[in-house]
Amino acid sequence: MDVKAIAAQLRKPVGDLGKEVGMKMNEGNLHINQYTIAALEIKSHQQILEIGMGNGFFVKDILSSAPAVKYTGCDFSETMVAEARSLNTRFIQKRQAEFIAAASDELPLFDALFDTVFTVNTLYFWEHPQKELAEIRRVLKPGGKIVIAIRPASVMQALPFVQYGFRLYEKEDVAALLEQNGFGRIHVIERPEPAGKMETLIVRAAKI
């Protein structure tokens, strides 16, 4: 598969190849997901929205973080939504989790519904991030929290596929973007990953 095709599948996994990409992302993104879930500081009875959950492999870790947590996953890949529903059938049956197919700039969700909205490795693909952030503000409760996790531009720029549809950010860029779109109390977490070549950047902020 050529580099451009890899970039397209990372943005929106489709079909059998997309399923394989989803599984590989679970492996490659293990640490960034673990660090992000810890940064959510989940409390009991919270409503959590994840934008771009892939095949939902890490949902079990979110739901086990505190009692009576409810999770919603949103992805614009029908392939990933189907995979996530299959992988998390028991949580769906218990009404602890639901998965919806939708674009992140048009969330089919009620206002002021979630305590926390988070996303891992999707910011690169937001063509008009102010639209996504406006939707996130809309569905967050007053004072609700947004958590964005990416790998910084200094790491990503070495990867050949980022020339196709990726917008890269450093921590200052993400913090400024959030501040310009109605978020405050910004906190930046930087964590090296065990492989040594990757780095996790997590930016947490509150709706103001």
Results as ranks from 00 to 15, higher is better:
D173R: 01
I189C: 05
V14R: 12
Q93P: 00
F110S: 13
F166Q: 09
A205N: 05
G28T: 05
V147C: 10
E172D: 13
I208H: 10
L113K: 14
I42D: 04
I51F: 06
T200E: 07
G52Q: 02
R137N: 14
A101D: 11
N88H: 03
R85S: 08
K24N: 13
G28D: 04
H128W: 07
I186T: 11
K207W: 01
Q96R: 12
M1V: 14
P129R: 06
E127K: 12
V162F: 06
A5D: 15
S77K: 02
Q93N: 13
P194V: 09
K197P: 01
D115P: 06
A7E: 07
K43F: 12
S44I: 09
A206R: 13
S44A: 14
E50W: 02
Q9K: 03
L168R: 06
G22A: 14
Q9Y: 02
D115T: 01
V59H: 01
V81F: 01
V188I: 15
I189S: 11
I42P: 03
A68C: 14
R151H: 11
L63D: 09
L107Q: 05
A8G: 06
K131G: 00
S65Y: 02
A84Q: 07
A195T: 15
R137S: 15
I208M: 14
R11N: 10
V21Q: 05
D105Y: 01
G144K: 01
I42K: 08
V203S: 04
E127V: 10
F110K: 15
P13F: 07
G196I: 05
Q157L: 12
V174S: 01
R95M: 12
A102H: 04
A66R: 02
Q34A: 03
L40Y: 06
